[in-house]
Amino acid sequence: MSAAEKPAAPATVLLYSHRPEVRDAVRAAVGRQPAPDVGPLSWLECSTGDEVVAAVDAGGIDLCVLDGEAQPTGGMALARQLEVEVSDRPVVCLLVARQSDRWLAHWSRAEATLALPVDPLVAPGVVAELLRARAGRPAARR
């Protein structure tokens, strides 16, 4: 079976925001399978920082998409906490309201950012690249 014929491995994406409309928008923008070689995705939604930490500690998460604007615990603080506390943490994508906040995402050790509102033409590619990196596969050719 060639790599092109190999079925895509399922992936679990943790999606954190205290706002349900943000979670809905991210899921709609990314879709169920962001690329032919990635997914299908299983979404685990969290609305509190404690839920995120518990889910990551339990394992089985491939990617965390964290809302940098979430209240009371922001996604950037959670990303930094996971970097420090979890030896094999999932890759992290931060949702940022302003492009000028990308430096904070870098500080938090996130691998990528997506601007809010989430662009459905950009989000699937970012998620696919992060999941490929997590799996140790090469980036897709563009």
Rank of each mutant, 00 (worst) to 15 (best):
D37M: 03
G136H: 00
A29P: 03
A55K: 01
D50R: 15
P10I: 00
M76V: 10
A3D: 13
P34W: 04
A35L: 05
E5M: 15
V86Y: 04
Q99Y: 11
L131P: 10
E45C: 04
L94R: 06
A70V: 07
D67Y: 07
V53T: 12
E83H: 15
A140S: 14
W103L: 15
V84E: 15
A112Y: 06
T48R: 04
S100E: 15
A97K: 00
L121M: 10
G74N: 08
D119Q: 07
S42Q: 14
A35N: 12
A9S: 13
L82C: 02
Q99H: 13
R141M: 13
L104I: 13
R102D: 13
A123E: 00
L14E: 07
P34Q: 09
R32P: 09
I61C: 08
W43P: 10
Q99N: 12
R32H: 10
R19T: 01
A105D: 07
Q33G: 03
E69Q: 08
C93L: 14
R142E: 14
E85C: 05
R27D: 09
L130D: 11
R102Y: 12
R27M: 08
P7C: 01
H106V: 15
R80I: 03
L14C: 03
A55T: 10
V53H: 00
S100L: 02
R132C: 04
R109A: 15
E45D: 10
A9Y: 07
D62L: 10
G60T: 05
T73S: 06
L82K: 07
D37C: 02
A11T: 01
W103K: 14
L66W: 02
A54W: 03
P138C: 06
V91Q: 15
G59V: 00
E21S: 14
Y16I: 13
S87C: 11
R102T: 15
P138T: 06
C46A: 13
G75E: 01
Y16A: 10
E69I: 04
R137I: 01
A133D: 14
G136V: 08
S17T: 01
A139G: 12
P124R: 03
M1A: 15
A110R: 00
E5W: 15
G136K: 00
R134S: 11
A139F: 09
A29V: 05
L82M: 03
E85S: 09
T12L: 11
L95H: 09
V56H: 02
E45Q: 05
W107M: 08
A11I: 01
D101N: 11
V26K: 06
L15A: 07
P138Q: 12
L82A: 00
W107I: 04
Q71S: 14
D57M: 09
V13N: 14
V13G: 14
V96G: 04
L114R: 02
R98K: 15
E51P: 05
R80K: 14
D37V: 01
T113H: 02
A97Y: 05
H106S: 14
D67T: 02
A58M: 07
L78M: 01
T73K: 00
